[in-house]
Computed example of a mutant assay.
Amino acid sequence: MPASRDEAVQEQALTADVTLARINQGVQLHHGQGRREAARDVFTQIWDEIGGERGDPLHVCVLAHSMADVQDDVEQELIWDQRALAAAGLLTDARLAQVGVPMPVAALYPSLHLSLAECHRKLGDLDRAREYLQRAQAGIGALGDDQYGQLIKGGLDRLTQQLTSR
């Protein structure tokens, strides 16, 4: 259930885009029901349908970022997060607004960079992890003071502590 009116509007807009709605169903399988493999199957089917990396950059970005979360192998997770980052570079604020996402493309980067930093930390490449962490921190000004922004900032704080304690 959405926590605010803005989130309700965003959820409604995302469900108006069939592909984003299906991606959201996969996210719910994973996060809401703990059905990681089922979510991965849904994401794989959508990936094939949208034409992979040649698809709509919004779909590619959201799907790849979600697919990264359901990987069992960290190297595969990294590949999916890199795909998401590449697709974000092709997005425009107008495209986000078209589906009702009430934030600029710049607000996506802290999450994407955080995910990449976490992958590199898991792989033991702490220098790359710190590099992506710095990129994420540099972009936090684009985040709102909402649930999403707080989630990402909390993740950045946790990762900062993990990397400074090593």
Rank of each mutant, 00 (worst) to 15 (best):
S111L: 13
G52K: 12
A94K: 11
I140N: 01
E75L: 11
E131D: 13
D56H: 09
C61V: 04
G149K: 06
L151D: 04
V42M: 06
K153R: 15
I79W: 10
Q82W: 11
R121H: 14
E53P: 01
R128S: 12
D72L: 09
Q150F: 09
G144A: 14
Q137R: 11
A117M: 10
Y109L: 15
E77S: 09
A138H: 14
D72E: 11
A86Q: 10
G144N: 07
H113G: 00
G52H: 11
L91F: 08
D145L: 09
F43V: 01
M103T: 12
L143E: 00
H120K: 08
T44Y: 03
Q71H: 12
L126C: 06
V101E: 01
K153Q: 11
D69E: 15
V74I: 15
G155T: 03
V42L: 14
L112A: 03
R95C: 02
V101P: 00
D69K: 11
D73E: 14
S115V: 02
A106N: 06
L112D: 00
E118H: 09
L90E: 02
G51Y: 10
G100S: 08
R128E: 09
A68D: 00
D56F: 04
S111W: 07
G124Y: 06
G51I: 14
Q82E: 15
G144C: 09
D93C: 08
P104G: 11
R130K: 14
G144K: 07
D125S: 10
E77T: 03
R95F: 02
P110N: 07
D73I: 12
G154I: 08
D56A: 07
R128A: 12
A64Y: 01
E118K: 05
G89K: 05
H120R: 11
A97R: 13
M67C: 08
Y132S: 01
G55Q: 11
R130N: 13
I46D: 02
D48R: 14
K153W: 05
P104T: 14
A88V: 13
G100C: 09
L58C: 07
E49P: 03
M67H: 08
C61F: 03
K122H: 12
H65F: 14
R83P: 00
D48L: 13
A107R: 04
I50F: 09
L123Y: 07
W80D: 00
A138F: 12
A97M: 08
C119D: 06
V42A: 05
A129T: 09
I152L: 05
G144L: 10
A86F: 09
M67A: 15
P110G: 07
G141P: 01
E75Q: 13
G139W: 03
Q150C: 11
P104S: 12
G55I: 13
Y148P: 00
Q150I: 14
G139F: 05
E131F: 14
G100D: 03
G55S: 15
Q150S: 13
Q98D: 14
I79T: 13
